[in-house]
Design a protein around this nucleic acid. Structure first.
Lengths: 333, 333
DNA sequence: CGGCAAACTGAAAACGTTTTCAACTAAATC
DNA sequence: GATTTAGTTGAAAACGTTTTCAGTTTGCCG
């Protein structure tokens, strides 16, 4: 199937110049006489010539395409980041190849390699369990990779995040200060550094500051889904938890609805704080109090950082921490 | 920046064969002696050779990449479709370049052209207002384009949808049968054929069958956002509506919460039916009754259809209608 | 009006594959 | 053992750009 019929050569012939000149005007090179430029431009218009980006990519070794690896676009958290990434990518004339990994390390590696084979100029990676093997692959390539909303406990790659430890610590402290002696920590897989290393650390620190002993029974490791959340009420009650710090909005919404369905009123009899501040927090009743993260900006800043890396500009700070906030809504007292 | 150092030529030299042979084994061509194949494969392994997809694309005129144009990935409806698309794309060894258009016709045209310049093998388009100019661009290219969850009133492009007219008609009929004399129709922009031509038609037909005159005051044209929904309660009350057929889940959630906030209980004093059956319908309280659409499948089937088109296979049905359903939850009596 | 720098232009070599075509080898047929 | 045939292989030409380098204008100065 012929996608493209008109080449730079056709334009050159029609305009009685060389391909080199056509290439120059297409690329906005200054060294072209205005008259020549106009002539070429007219022919381009007339022939409806559209440069072939593949050929261009081969010749220039730049594809103006970046890869984006995301666990699941269907998750609002990642969708927001992806949107931020695409917007600044577009701003800098890049396109994104978006791939879903389902946080499956095998898929991640596979997809990383197909992205590299497609010669992307850079990669934004989201996903929180960075296996040794994946880390090796990261190291092996010269293509810049930045992590967005994702932490690697060994800070090898540039990244954009918020300070998860501090944010969780602060919120859990508030919960404790309000009289909750037994605060549950409901999270996604603990193997993911963001949960097992960072957020859990914040939780423990808050406990410690308040002189409350850490009780493993209060830690609920889940799969981060709404459905799972809805089923958690009995377990939460059985350990006498009166509040929960939850690491995912959908999960938190599930818990909240599970509570309501069991006639446990939120926040009077159970307080809930969630972590991602997606728009879901406002759509649900009661509205969920949350750590606020600039989701869109995390993506946007990550992509901006990547453009610098791709241009070999020096970056002052490799691991960016964006400010977080605490938004009190109706799921806390 | 050198992304790739090892070429097919290096492999050829190291294995003492020609590049043609290496190309053959890489592409699984049968005409290679097993011994040779093994030798080449070993060298590939040893050198960690990874074929350059850009060069391949130039030589073969196939990029194994498809473009996906979406109004906004952040909208769960489109995110679900996108996920379906990506999954079957991956299944058929394609990658997707994902771009957000914000339903802006200018952006759509621009993005379409950059996708074509990148030589994508096909395009999945989502967006409901297909301007004449866009339609022209569609016609001009030989690259196959399929519409997913999007209708063009002139059925020029292959598409995958549900029968919006019938679905809305059926739901509105149910509302009327349950005694609602004044059913509002709350929708996104009427210029979008899916609203102005299809859904509205279903609404009118239901009215007509029931012998109820069409009242323009009951039609609320909005921008499809949650926020707008929350503000709609007074207007809805002022026209004495007792139920609403809503064309977007977030919008519907907004309306519902707006009602609750004004102490109008749903469904006792106001019934709501929504249209997209995203997971939001279940997360909100009361859960929203909805037309069910196989969102993921619409994307998946669209992509599958596209693969056929890209292979020049004959397709039996160009405009696919997937089955819809009606899911009663708690926002209707 | 000769000379020189600056501005402009073109020829041709990359870029890393696929693909065609011809040539070669080994097996099969008679 | 000669001939055919099928199975393997390699040389080289595409694919559509960018980029280098050398060459040609042009404009300006004295």
């Amino acid at each position: 199937m012929d996608k493209q019929t008109i080449t730079i050569y056709d334009v050159a012939r029609e305009a009685s110049v060389s391909m080199a000149t056509v290439s120059r005007v297409v690329n906005g090179n200054a060294n072209v006489k205005p008259a020549t430029r106009k002539k070429v431009l007219d022919v381009i218009e007339k022939l409806d010539y559209r440069p072939n980006a593949v050929a261009r990519g081969l010749a220039s070794k730049k594809t103006t395409t970046v890869g984006v690896i995301v666990p699941d676009v269907t998750n609002m958290y990642f969708a927001s980041l992806a949107r931020g990434i695409d917007d600044v990518a577009t701003m800098y004339k890049y396109n994104i190849i978006l791939t879903n990994s389902d946080s499956n390390s095998e898929k991640e590696i596979k997809v990383l390699n197909t992205l590299l084979s497609k010669q992307v100029d850079g990669i934004v990676f989201m996903g929180n369990e960075i296996t040794d093997q994946l880390r090796e692959e990261f190291k092996r390539t010269k293509t810049p990779i930045v992590l967005a909303g994702s932490v690697d406990d060994q800070d090898l790659n540039p990244s954009v995040n918020i300070d998860y430890v501090a944010a969780v610590q602060e919120e859990v402290k508030n919960l404790i200060d309000r009289g909750n002696k037994r605060v549950a920590f409901v999270c996604g897989p603990l193997e993911q550094a963001i949960n097992g290393k960072y957020r859990l650390k914040g939780y423990k620190q808050a406990l410690k500051s308040a002189g409350i002993p850490y009780d493993e029974k209060l830690v609920f490791e889940t799969d981060d889904t709404y459905k799972t959340g809805t089923l958690l009420q009995p377990a939460l009650m059985s350990v006498n938890a009166t509040a929960a710090m939850v690491t995912d909005d959908e999960l938190a919404a599930g818990i909240m609805n599970g509570m309501s369905d069991a006639d446990v009123t939120v926040p009077d009899n159970f307080e809930i704080i969630t972590s991602n501040d997606t728009k879901l927090t406002e759509m649900v009743r009661p509205k969920m109090s949350s750590i606020t993260q600039p989701l869109y900006d995390i993506g946007a800043v990550a992509m901006r950082l990547l453009t610098k890396l791709m241009n070999n500009e020096t970056v002052d700070e490799k691991n960016v921490l964006l400010p977080y906030g605490l938004m009190k809504r109706e799921s806390t007292k």
